[in-house]
Design a protein around this nucleic acid. Structure first.
Length: 586
RNA sequence: GGUUCCGUAGCUCAAUGGAUAGAGCAACUGCCUUCUAAGCAGUAGGUUGAAGGUUCGAGUCCUUCCGGGACCA
């Protein structure tokens, strides 16, 4: 049974409430005594700004802080000292407490996993189209989704990761038409091109031809190649055998390509849905809406819904074919039947905010009980210096290419060091990949999700400074220490006088559950990224300034080693929440 | 036109309404005979887009405007 970790904030808060009651006869709500982390230029761990209480206590800030500080020091054993500066009461936690916290963290193998809650969450992400390979923007989505799922899991929820493949629709028909027209009998195997790239090339080809034809046509006329695609969509929905065969063949190529990429990314799903399997269900929900008089048929034959404030929204084209939202209606019902979720999170770019408002409004009008459980988690685009990435125009940062390029950069760097001697070629390649993915994932995850990101292909992603590599490096150094430590080195050291830096490190270890909690409620993996970065920075400062294995005093040596072990474990845990692997050597 | 997100150092980003707004990159100085220098220590870099307002206290909340993106028309 692991030792209970002392809950510092709640204990302090109730002590402060008591202090105000005893000293000023003032009853404070728990929320009112909000503790903050002391700025690092002052001594202390937690600070209480006393300004808000001055009026009710009829006291000057300094006098008030002094009184409360005095009371806390004499009536609790958490506080060693206190300082009153500029109306802030800075509380210094007793060093013995830190020692106890370190031991309880070391003793708790599942540290960083919050208590299990009865809450079932479905996270939908990735959701690629089967007409093009994935680019940097898709990577942000994949990583945000995977990371969010890991964070919610650590926060105690039951999490299901699902993918939804956009495998049908007019855009898919476009690459099919282009292949029919220009592909001959070329295949990914015959050309040596990865399947998703192979199909993506025909999507680009379609757009070229479309634009050429459009330029030659009078205003308002539809290019022949687009007419073909539109006809093909109708034939597809009828189940035409030639069209279906082509569709299955081309999608198969794309899935082969996707699997390679997902493997590289380390992205997995509990279930994959296909829009082709849901659009009929979607259409039946449209019928249901018409029956209930929530939807109506327009004069042009399209089915639409009038959503107050959101305008009119078409749900089924006049030719009867399904559109994006038709499928989403079906998928929503299907998924609820599968999981009976308490919360459904759609990880989709912020360009679709309106789409999801519409979807949720419709589900609510249809009286679905889970409508209020659905949430859109919008994130910003990854833009290039000259604007948005557009697959059909070919100006994208291709995911596969970027990963290869980064692994190559790592490989070149490695050529100049000798730290990885003894690794086999296979292990070395795995290490290059781990480092490349670490840098890439961290680069995309450390930024607040709602922010749009700019990526300049000319500036490569860094491996130095505030990067995933920095954290991986810190971890590798800790592993090296542990390898070199004497086998008889105890990990149950006696209590010693801890330095400022050691106390600060323990405090940061102690903050892990709070960071997970915050990341989980705000849906922000960046909270974890920044937490891990700060921890690694503090540790590196400690590592540079204090001898660990070289320390002569065995008690101090043991404490420092234990501290290193704990930092390593917490770094590993935090990075796992970002789906980043840490190598033991680099 | 409407809705919405964003605007912080040259660049990329931090900062639960709290103290002198912090990091990294790039630039410049130091530190490898010692636990991994992908590191550490330091110098320099700011009217937080602008103006009002709320507050003991605003980068953060409210209003208006400016700039950028996205979406709906």
């Amino acid at each position: 049974m692991p030792i209970e970790i002392i809950p510092l904030e709640p204990t302090l808060r109730s002590a402060i409430q008591q202090a105000f009651l005893k000293c000023y006869n003032l009853t404070l709500s728990e929320a009112a005594c909000s503790l903050q982390v002391t700025r690092k230029e002052f001594e202390g761990t937690f600070s209480l700004p006393v300004f808000p209480f001055c009026k009710s206590c009829q006291a000057q800030p300094t006098e008030l802080a002094e009184t409360i500080g005095q009371w806390l020091q004499t009536h609790t054993d958490l506080i060693a000292r206190y300082h009153v500066i500029n109306g802030f009461l800075n509380l210094v936690i007793d060093a013995a407490i830190w020692m106890a916290i370190l031991k309880s963290i070391a003793d708790n193998p599942s540290y960083g996993h919050l208590p299990k809650q009865k809450r079932r969450v479905v996270v939908e992400f990735s959701c690629p189209n089967t007409n093009k390979p994935q680019h940097l923007g898709h990577l942000r989505n994949n990583f945000l989704g995977s990371s969010l799922a890991a964070i919610l899991d650590a926060a105690g929820y039951t999490v299901h990761k699902v993918n939804l493949i956009n495998d049908r629709g007019i855009h898919i028909c476009k690459s099919m038409v282009a292949y029919q027209q220009f592909g001959g009998d070329a295949t990914p195997a015959s050309t040596g091109i990865k399947g998703d790239h192979f199909v993506g090339n025909y999507y680009v080809k379609f757009d070229q031809v479309y634009k050429e034809e459009l330029a030659l046509l009078p205003e308002g006329e539809t290019p022949l190649i687009l007419q073909k695609a539109q006809r093909m969509l109708v034939e597809w929905e009828k189940g035409d055998s030639v069209v279906m065969a082509l569709w299955q063949k081309m999608n198969g190529w794309v899935y082969d390509g996707f699997n390679v990429t997902y493997n590289q990314l380390g992205v997995t799903f509990d279930k994959t849905y296909y829009e082709s399997e849901a659009y009929l269900l979607g259409k039946s929900i449209v019928e249901e809406g018409v029956h209930k008089n929530i939807f109506y048929k327009r004069t042009d034959g399209a089915i639409a819904v009038d959503l107050e404030g959101l305008g009119e929204k078409v749900l089924l084209r006049s030719d009867g074919t399904a559109i994006y939202i038709t499928q989403d209606l079906g998928i929503a019902d299907w998924r609820y039947a599968d999981y009976h979720f308490d919360q459904m999170i759609y990880v989709v770019g912020n360009e679709q905010t309106y789409h999801f408002k519409v979807l949720f409004a419709i589900m609510s009008q249809l009286g679905r009980p889970y409508a209020t459980a659905m949430h859109h988690f919008p994130y910003g685009m990854v833009d290039l210096p000259d604007g948005k990435m557009k697959s059909r125009e070919g100006n994208v940062v291709d995911a596969d290419h970027l990963i290869d390029e980064m692994a190559g950069t790592v490989g070149n760097y490695m050529g100049h060091t000798h730290k990885t001697e003894g690794l086999t070629q296979e292990e070395l390649e795995k290490l290059h990949h781990t480092l490349a993915m670490g840098a890439l994932k961290f680069f995309l995850l450390r930024v607040a999700p709602q922010k749009r990101m700019l990526f300049n292909p000319n500036d490569s992603i860094d491996f130095q400074g505030d990067t995933g590599t920095f954290i991986q490096y810190t971890y590798a150094r800790i592993c090296s220490l542990i390898r070199k430590a004497q086998a008889n080195q105890t990990l149950d050291p006696p209590s010693i006088q801890l330095s400022q830096l050691e106390q600060a490190l323990i405090f940061q270890l102690y903050r892990l559950p709070a960071a997970i909690e915050e990341a989980a409620v705000t849906y922000m993996p960046s909270v974890i990224a920044n937490y891990a970065l700060e921890l690694a920075k503090t540790y590196n400062r400690f590592y540079a300034s204090a001898p660990i294995l070289r320390e002569a005093n065995p008690s101090i040596r043991a404490v420092r080693l234990l501290l290193s072990v704990c930092v390593g474990r917490v770094l590993k845990k935090s990075m796992a929440l970002l789906t980043i692997e840490l190598p033991e050597k680099m």
